[in-house]
């Protein structure tokens, strides 16, 4: 606060004095922000992790603890591997959930896609052992209340995603194409929508399908790391 006492005696209209006050206040403010940031950082990180873990457990029935994994793209194509790490805020991290015996229940993945109004963020569970979707939960959406937000509450719609099979179609040396739905459902949006919320329900199905297609090959490529983390 040395600048401020200096200004008390000086002529307040001098440009240098104005400059000094502005810089002085700026520096003080910056320091204060830094202090609060440092003081709250640990709690915020913990809160974020707890929030995401909680969301992951709701889409992984039977899981009691989760570990985050990051894909380390060391080589070309799919020759990378999973690395367990604590960064649970990045969208590039997946969460693997384990039951009390330490067996892998499934992985929870965050995905985002365009809905009717704005971006919909959701988290869904996927079981690599059974190759099925385990369920999903909306994290953030601005869809129409009473219509679009029924994708969370309409049990007929939500139940379709419990045990929805994921198929990998081998296309030779290209990346395998992945689609949602069984033999009788040929395309992702053959998941039955909700009337009155057609766009939103399709958006949810498409978002999950696109995300599975993206992560499926990597999960398959290094499944053993995910499986053995708690055995």
């Amino acid at each position: 606060m040395s600048q401020t006492s200096l200004n008390k005696t000086a002529n307040p209209t001098s440009p240098w004095q104005i400059y000094l006050v502005v810089v002085g206040v700026g520096v003080t403010c910056g320091t204060l922000i830094l202090a609060v940031h440092e003081a709250t950082r640990q709690r915020i990180t913990d809160n974020r992790a707890a929030y995401r873990d909680q969301a992951a457990i709701t889409v992984l029935p039977g899981a009691i603890r989760v570990t985050s994994f990051r894909w380390d793209d060391t080589g070309q194509g799919l020759s990378g591997h999973w690395v367990a790490d604590g960064d649970r805020q990045s969208a590039e991290t997946i969460l693997a959930g384990y039951d009390p015996a330490g067996a892998l229940v499934g992985v929870a993945i965050e995905a985002a896609g365009r809905g009717y109004q704005d971006t919909i963020r959701l988290i869904y569970g996927y079981s690599p052992t059974q190759q099925v979707i385990l369920g999903f939960r909306i994290l953030e959406s601005r869809e129409t209340p009473g219509l679009g937000d029924r994708v969370e509450t309409d049990s007929a719609f939500v139940d379709q995603f419990r045990g929805l099979p994921v198929q990998a179609i081998d296309r030779g040396n290209e990346e395998p194409r992945v689609e949602l739905g069984g033999a009788d459902q040929q395309r992702a949006w053959q998941v039955d929508g909700i009337s009155g919320a057609t766009v939103t329900s399709r958006a949810v199905a498409r978002t999950i399908a696109e995300s599975v297609a993206r992560w499926f090959p990597r999960i398959e490529a290094d499944l053993s790391t995910l499986r053995e983390a708690h055995l």
Binding site: G26, C29, G30, I33, L34, H37
Partner: peptide
């Protein structure tokens, strides 16, 4: 990143 808001407004 914590200085984002204050620099923006300035």
């Amino acid at each position: 990143p914590f200085l984002n808001l204050i620099s923006l407004i300035a």
